[in-house]
Design a protein around this nucleic acid. Structure first.
Length: 303
DNA sequence: GCCCAGGCACTCA
DNA sequence: TGAGTGCCTGGG
């Protein structure tokens, strides 16, 4: 991977396995706005980033080398060798081979723990546009103004202390619905140190999952999302309805299979790459509506 | 108006 | 230990 400085921009060339839209729109994060094709505003780590593709390069607009190296390199997971991960997954499994070919430019983002935790608590029983709206509402109300792009104001996701001032009724006004009390419980546990990501480093993935599930509104699915997208646990395998469908469809003869069974088979098959496999499969399943009712289903491989 | 969405808590057997 | 049910909200 190579980058150079060009005026106020950092320009990334000679990279692989990265397509902005595939990485942002594969359901792992909620803090981005599409400006046009391969041109996005991204909010992360208290910064507003304008990122776009230009003649095969990726431009990080108005970005210092310090921010690029200190924030974005890690956020977009550019230090990881995705070629070998994709080869490993594809070589042993035809389904994965197809799923990887379908979206070879997905990278697993390294998001902020607290933001990721609250965002995926909000995600339960909810749709992506709605999740984005709720996270944005919370940021606008409790976060800090960080900039304007194309006439749109952007706000950072609040620190735990800032969000702790929120009453349940106020969170409801942000359209969190029944999840408001879950958010309050999560904030309390983070501030008290009851939930402390620094302590996680010495724990196994199963132990971290149990810790996270002490928070109200955090079950196995949300815990695995938080571990995969913000704690670098690549063996986490978030099993939501789509992953359940795609796994049942391809590995269990289309039979409705319990999440526990799916979870175990994923770990047996993919091991420490389970999280990457999940992301390729999830994207593939959602795009082709694999396993959804016939009305919604489109034919695999015809698009 | 009804149904459901990237789950989870709660209840009851 | 597992199955069944309700949940804010808004778009189809």
């Amino acid at each position: 991977m190579k980058y150079n400085l060009c005026g106020n921009n950092v320009v990334l060339s000679d990279y692989d396995s990265f397509v902005i839209s595939q990485t942002l729109e594969c359901g792992q994060c909620f803090r981005f706005e599409k400006i046009k094709d391969e041109d996005y505003a991204v909010i992360a780590r208290g910064k507003l980033l304008h990122i776009f593709a230009d003649n095969g390069s990726i431009v990080f607009e108005n970005t210092t080398e310090d921010d690029f190296k200190g924030i974005w390199l890690r956020y977009f997971d550019f230090e990881r060798d995705y070629k070998s991960i994709k080869e490993t997954l594809s070589s042993s499994d035809n389904t994965l081979s197809d799923a990887v070919k379908y979206a070879p430019g997905i990278r697993i983002l390294n998001q902020d723990f607290f933001e990721c935790l609250i965002s995926f608590i909000i995600s339960q029983n909810n749709r992506i546009p709605m999740i984005k709206k709720v996270v944005s509402n919370i940021s606008q109300k409790y976060g800090k103004f960080i900039g304007n792009l194309n006439g749109v104001d952007y706000y950072s996701f609040p620190e735990p202390e800032a969000l702790s001032t929120a009453a349940e009724a106020e969170l409801m006004e942000c359209k969190t619905g029944f999840r408001a009390k879950y958010i309050i419980d999560a904030v309390e546990k983070v501030i008290s140190g009851d939930i402390n990501p620094e302590k996680f480093s010495s724990m196994s993935t199963d132990e971290v999952r149990s810790e996270l599930m002490k928070i109200k509104g955090v079950g196995p699915k949300v815990a695995d999302c938080v571990m995969l997208f913000s704690l670098g646990r690549s063996d986490a395998f978030p099993t939501d309805v789509w992953v359940k469908r795609v796994m049942s469809y391809f590995y269990f003869n289309g039979e409705d299979t319990p999440v526990k069974v799916i979870h175990k088979s994923a770990y047996d098959k993919f091991g420490i790459y389970a999280g990457f496999a999940q992301q390729y499969l999830f994207n593939y399943a959602r795009e082709f509506k694999i396993g959804a009712s016939d009305k919604k289903k489109s034919k695999v491989g015809t698009e």
